[in-house]
């Protein structure tokens, strides 16, 4: 306890009628201001019925341009709290998406994930309402589709066919060069896991497309 802290206050001018006048006057001025606003238009809106527009640059819930994304993990690495997780299998140039989740329990909407993206495919949207009935639902998947689309399948098939043709041509060329004896070898590379590795792309594609 410090004793010198009970500082004597400067003697106040005790003006009796002055105090009365100040009180009445300042109260009247204040009530005038509040009365003016009593009739003014409200600045609030009825929220769920009426929503204020969010701006162009608003940092809301992310959206992903899935067809552009190359699953490079740059955004996940840039994230200060590691709330982004992604998983895809590579089929040559095509990606079979398994998940791209953002944990909105952690996300602090700092936009640091947007800047490092080499393909400019993750953005922050204008949605801000994060009302869910269960915490688990806050781990949101940004993917609009999972697995392979029909287009992708066609493209993979084409790439596969091209590859096979190329391999066949190579093999034929080799056979021609060596004089036969070589066997066709397209599936020897060994299966890559979920992470997908471009080195094993060609053989993966051959493996994961049994219909071909």
């Amino acid at each position: 306890m410090m004793t010198d802290l009970s500082i004597p206050t400067a003697p106040r001018k005790r003006r009796y009628w002055g105090n009365v006048w100040d009180a009445v006057k300042s109260t009247a001025i204040g009530m005038g201001i509040t009365f003016k606003y009593l009739w003014s238009k409200s600045v609030t809106v009825q929220y769920p019925d009426e929503k204020l527009p969010t701006d162009e640059r608003y940092r809301g819930i992310h959206y992903l341009e899935e067809d552009l994304c190359i699953c490079c993990d740059a955004c996940a690495k840039a994230c200060p709290i590691d709330c982004i997780e992604m998983e895809a299998t590579r089929h040559g140039k095509e990606l079979e998406w398994h998940k791209f989740t953002l944990d909105y329990q952690k996300c602090m909407f700092c936009e640091l994930c947007v800047y490092p993206c080499p393909k400019d495919c993750i953005h922050m949207g204008k949605e801000y309402a994060l009302v869910v009935e269960d915490r688990g639902q806050l781990v949101m998947d940004l993917l609009s589709w999972k697995g392979l689309t029909e287009d992708q399948k066609v493209r993979i098939a084409e790439a596969e066919a091209k590859k096979a043709a190329k391999a066949a041509a190579q093999a034929a060329a080799q056979a021609a060069a060596k004089g036969g004896g070589a066997k066709m070898d397209a599936g020897g590379g060994g299966g890559g896991g979920g992470g997908g590795d471009s080195a094993a792309g060609a053989s993966d594609a051959a493996e994961t497309e049994p219909t071909h």
């Binding site: 009365f35 606003y37 009593l38 009739w39 003014s40 238009k41 409200s42 609030t44 009825q46």
Partner: peptide, 14 residues
């Protein structure tokens, strides 16, 4: 309502 309108809000509306 008085509080709401003085405070440039709407007060109960629903």
């Amino acid at each position: 309502k008085v509080a709401g309108h003085i405070q440039v809000r709407l007060g109960p509306m629903r």
